[in-house]
Design a protein around this nucleic acid. Sequence first.
DNA 1: ACGTTTGTTTCGACAATACT
DNA 2: AGTATTGTCGAAACAAACGT
Length: 332
Amino acid sequence: MNNTNFKNFFKKVWDNSNILIDADNFNLKILTAILFLGRHQIELGEEITFNLNQIRKLLGLEGSIYTYCRIENAIFYFKINFYKCKLKNNRERIAHAIKAFEKPMNDIYFNKEWRVEIDSVLREQIIQLYFHDSFNENDNPFIYELINSDKILFPNYFFLNYHSLSDGSVKLYFAMKLQAKLTRKDEWEIDEISEFTGIGKSTSYRIIKNLIQFDLVRKHAGSRRTQKKAIYIINKNLKFNNGYTPFEIKTIKNMLNNAEKKLTDGEIKLYSYLYYLTDGKGEIKKSQAEIGRLIGRERNTISELTDILHEKGYIIKETYIDGNQTRCRYII
DNA sequence: ACGTTTGTTTCGACAATACT
DNA sequence: AGTATTGTCGAAACAAACGT
């Protein structure tokens, strides 16, 4: 966990807000840590999940029983005590920062999942401060930087198999990795996958088979006897270690979800491959035929798709003369 | 024995994308 | 451009376990 990130988050949330919390510094740190860990869940409108160990590590506290007790007490503190904040319409809001929380039973190793519901105004403030103003570099370079420091690592093994992966499965893998990062959960039932990807259930079944075939996703079979549904898990222990390529969360969100800049499955496949080739910046001079071979497309398809990516602002495509040969280069 | 429930797969029509 | 291939979705089919 990047500690600078957390410090920036803390500063941003409390310095620039009009939220007044009358808590001692330790308790406030715990609350902030919870908000920080759950920042993506807050954005998704979900409850925050975490375990005590994660909080301890984030704050760099020593692993004693005493520490865990203090963390737990801090959670109780914000459930029981009020905080005040000034609203725009000249009103004051008095509420509990933590509306409710669910505590796991027998959490003897402090690694079981806690679940916290925070005050709706507090939630709104976090989203405003942390997310909404943040995607425009000029408005707020500080936050822009903060968001960009959130990266997701993709195994190069994934890209090396692009020629045999269907467009749909490439997209699905990106969606799963993103979801895992945002919610810190990397195993799902098929219905959940279908829900967060927006792909139909039957299609999800078919596509995910391709990922299982390449061991990118593992399937734990369900059982009708015990009513356990099949679970699909992102495989983190690949047999082949060919390194990783970091993708910015923002980039993936743009490819998958951005209303105006969204890419089709085929475009995602090509763009992410170009991104992989350059580590997200710089230029590529490979021929269209070679790129086509690598991702399993025809040469002229690459030509067309790169035109679209250029139009959508994902890459810059330039034709230039190399000796007497016309060539293209692509800049991410 | 037969129907019901549940989770998954296949089918068929159509749409989207790729190829020639 | 026209044609071929691939992707998508809901419906229907299927398989396993359960219930009666």
